[in-house]
Design a protein around this nucleic acid. Structure first.
Lengths: 336, 336
DNA sequence: CAATCCAATGAAAACGGTTTCATGACAAGA
DNA sequence: TCTTGTCATGAAACCGTTTTCATTGGATTG
């Protein structure tokens, strides 16, 4: 590969001039610029990013840490991040953390050792706190699909509590009182918040949450199928199941159907996220829309702000969710 | 951030020694090593990747170009790539090409300008050929989920023709003769190959493909729904629909159900890929398994081979597929 | 004991750009 | 005409490592 020196020689100018021809063409006279560009073209010269980045000590790269890249929701968020990153000339380094603490903390190191300018983390834990000296950890950091709204770093997520509450309200308004909950993973804050929202809605309706009707499990199809299996084999009095993700819901639908239940007549089921598959289920899934791509876009936009040191506006945006009513829920006859 | 010079001063050695303490500790005497490590620890020194990489002219990074990162199948392949990359100390730069030629050709430039050591491309077009001088384009390149088996660079994919053929055979063996095809995008080679396999199977059974029964469309849920809509509104004599992806199939199931068809009694439907959702459909989808994660793993393994210049063995592996029989297909009564 | 060899280390030259600072030419203003 | 300012350009320092090559002292060999 040709180097700047080769070009400068061929064009009869200094390396500095060649450098300027690429980084700040306005600084050169028209004649020199043309000469340099011609020489560069002839030698097929392209500045080495490695050398450039090393010199300016920026990588133009942001690291995205995903708990599971194969998960539909996360993949959509990444897609949104990617779009904005591309628009702003950033590259994306993607790491699938597999929920593993060690690889998460490696992320910080990547910024400290200049492999990335900042990190966007998706999901529960804010890896920032894994740093041995969290208070002093000042790397550019954005947390998406998480929960820490009171943190110093930007976060972008939805109001999980309110979203769950609105879904519960919908169910309640249709007469459901015995509502089972297919919760996600037990310790998770998201799970907690959504459960809180559910509880709040129930309380407002004067009914208290029956702990026997909540079942925890993985945020996945099989997790949903299993949770539903456990719940349904224990309790058959629920008229509706509120699942904490569409995947859980779809898994539950499978189980319910295998158990011979008619949906939604015998059992209403609701999801959360609004992934595309929900629309194609049988019955089509009633759910709450979470703007996944948008979350990614906003997260990356915030990251751009941080990196350019011109962050402005809300740094804890709460993106709007929306009830998506399809056919997996029906009215339940009020007991006489 | 502390630099090598700071550490060397504190430890009372030369920068070279500090460098060796990290890159090749065996070269140092036990005493010096301990001294250096202690000094580094005290200053919280970590070598700057940027400087290291610049010096050695490698990035330890491979670029992955995905047509659509939010697509379930591609996301799984990326997941496989990621696993192997992590195991081998490589980072992954991910670009969502959106099927856009311009961003695809930018990928080559990223290698030429030292932003990545090589590129793995997923999907149809081998971007390598976008290079202005393809023959001379010698960047490390691996093509996955593509088709060019005769190329000079490694490829990893499945035998699309054989896979489609086996599915068609299965359908034929159950008595189906009027089989509709929900093909993917028309120009695509994958589509072509799968169609070839289908045609071969039909011919072997002595029935010729009815062109009126093939419908092209996007490889997506909505694409499948629309293709099915078009096909079914035109022709109602098909007893089975062979879809070229699970998403197409699931979209078609929705359409068929909306049309009031009972599945599989009135219409059998088959998919392709074996994404997880297929298992949870109603009816559960009969499909052909494509080992997505494995494809990713193999692709990255090949890339490691190329980068280390020790490529050995088959460079055009054809990964095994497998018929996954569930419930979306039933036997059709032979006409008397 | 002298001659060799080896292991441990340091000095300094890369790596390929960017950027600062100096210089010279030329135009405008006094 | 002399001064001042501006613009285009070049020389050289610099970014933080790695790596080559030279040096030293101690161990090994004949």
């Amino acid at each position: 590969m040709a180097q700047i020196r080769d070009v400068s020689k061929l064009a009869g100018v200094s390396p500095a001039t060649v450098s300027r021809a690429f980084s700040d063409p306005g600084k050169l006279s028209a004649g020199t610029l043309k000469k340099v560009l011609a020489a560069a073209e002839e030698l097929n010269y392209k500045p080495s990013s490695l050398a450039q980045l090393f010199r300016v000590k920026r990588t133009n790269t942001v690291l995205v840490m995903v708990p599971d890249i194969a998960n539909v929701l996360f993949a959509r968020v990444v897609s949104g991040i990617e779009r904005i990153a591309a628009d702003n000339g950033y590259n994306l380094l993607v790491i699938d953390t597999k929920d593993n603490k060690d690889v998460e903390s490696a992320g910080i190191e990547m910024v400290e050792t200049y492999r990335a300018d900042g990190v966007i983390q998706l999901g529960e834990r804010a890896l920032r706190w894994l740093h041995r000296d969290a208070e002093k950890c000042t790397i550019p950091f954005v947390h998406a699909i998480g929960t820490g709204l009171d943190e110093a770093y930007p976060t972008v997520t939805i109001n999980n509590q309110a979203a769950a509450e609105s879904m519960a309200n919908y169910l309640l308004s249709l007469g459901h009182r015995k509502i089972g909950v297919l919760a996600g993973i037990k310790g998770r804050l998201v799970t907690q918040h959504r459960l809180d929202g559910f509880r709040a809605a129930m309380n407002a309706f004067g009914v208290t949450l029956d702990e026997g009707l909540v079942e925890y499990g993985a945020y996945s199809l099989s997790g949903g199928a299993q949770s539903a299996q456990r719940l349904l084999s224990r309790r058959r009095d629920a008229t509706a199941l509120l699942a904490m993700s569409d995947e859980i819901a779809i898994g539950a639908i499978r189980t319910a159907q295998d158990l011979g239940l008619r949906l939604p007549e015998d059992l209403s089921i609701t999801g959360f996220d609004n992934i595309e598959f929900g629309k194609y289920c049988e019955p089509p899934l009633t759910t709450v829309m979470q703007p996944a791509e948008r979350i990614g876009e906003v997260a990356m936009t915030l990251m751009c702000g941080v990196l350019r040191d011109e962050l402005q506006g809300e740094i804890h945006p709460l993106l709007p969710t929306e009830l998506v009513i399809r056919k997996s829920v029906c009215r339940v006859e009020e007991p006489a």
